[in-house]
Amino acid sequence: MTIDRRRFLGGAMAAAGSGLLAGCASTQNAALVQPLRPVSREYAAMYGAIDTEPFPIPAVDLAEIEPRFLRREVTFRTTEQPGTIVVDPAARYAYLVLERGRAMRYGVGVGKEEGFNFRGSAVIARKAEWPRWTPTLNMIRREPERYGKYAQGLPGGPENPLGPRALYLYRDGQDTYYRLHGTDEPATIGTMVSSGCIRLINQDIIDLYRRVPVGTKVVVLSAGGDATS
């Protein structure tokens, strides 16, 4: 039987609002989606094309992304202070802690192998718009044919894998070489795909970027749900 695509997506989004599509939550940081959710028309506007940037940002095809990974405000229980970013790689979410037990939740893509992922606490020591990207030496060693040609770096732009914004994580004053950044592959949100960085939909990283200053604390949970360094 053929199912009308719009009716299917609408049902999926309604299910997400009722918690049927909610992701895993740790014992220390648990989120519950609020019962009322924006309608799909609002999501279409939220993830529409942006033409006010140095480079155009296309609209997101929402059919490519599970509804639960779209940006929304949720109830969030945590001991972290408002303004902190909490990343739960297992659930594929990043939370910006708000006041009164709330958080802005974003779907993310994480490292394709557990060993690639950063764990513990860091701070955002630098922010950049349309950042330059240079693969790490380890990336070049692992995949020289893929990354070797970019050893001198790639300027910001539509082909840059960091997207329109990047938040640089430092620990004890040292660059961890992990970032929260955008992506030109929104369909990968919710998957294990990156070389360790936390990737967000371009419209979402722009939203997060404007909400957080340099010095913001970032906590990346382990697979067990804690933030052990």
Rank of each mutant, 00 (worst) to 15 (best):
R6I: 15
R7H: 14
M13A: 05
M13N: 07
A15T: 04
A15K: 08
S18G: 00
G23A: 12
C24T: 11
A25M: 05
Q28D: 10
V33I: 13
Q34C: 07
L36Q: 11
R37K: 07
R41F: 14
M46E: 12
G48W: 12
F55R: 00
I57P: 01
I57V: 13
A59F: 09
L62P: 07
L70G: 02
P82Y: 15
T84N: 10
D88I: 10
P89G: 03
A90S: 08
Y95G: 00
L98M: 12
L98P: 01
E99I: 01
M104Y: 12
G107Y: 01
V108F: 07
G115I: 10
G120L: 10
A125E: 13
W130I: 00
P131Y: 03
R132N: 09
T136L: 05
N138W: 13
M139K: 04
M139S: 11
I140N: 05
R141H: 08
R141K: 13
R142D: 13
R142S: 10
E145G: 09
R146F: 14
Y147N: 03
K149E: 12
Y150E: 04
G156W: 12
G156P: 09
N160D: 01
Y168V: 00
L169T: 04
R171M: 09
Q174V: 12
T176M: 06
L180M: 15
G182L: 01
D184M: 03
P186Q: 09
P186N: 09
T188H: 05
I189C: 00
V193P: 00
V193M: 03
S194F: 03
R199N: 09
L200N: 04
D204Q: 06
I206P: 01
Y209G: 00
Y209M: 01
R211D: 06
V212R: 03
P213D: 06
V220F: 07
V220H: 03
S222P: 02
G224H: 14
D226M: 03
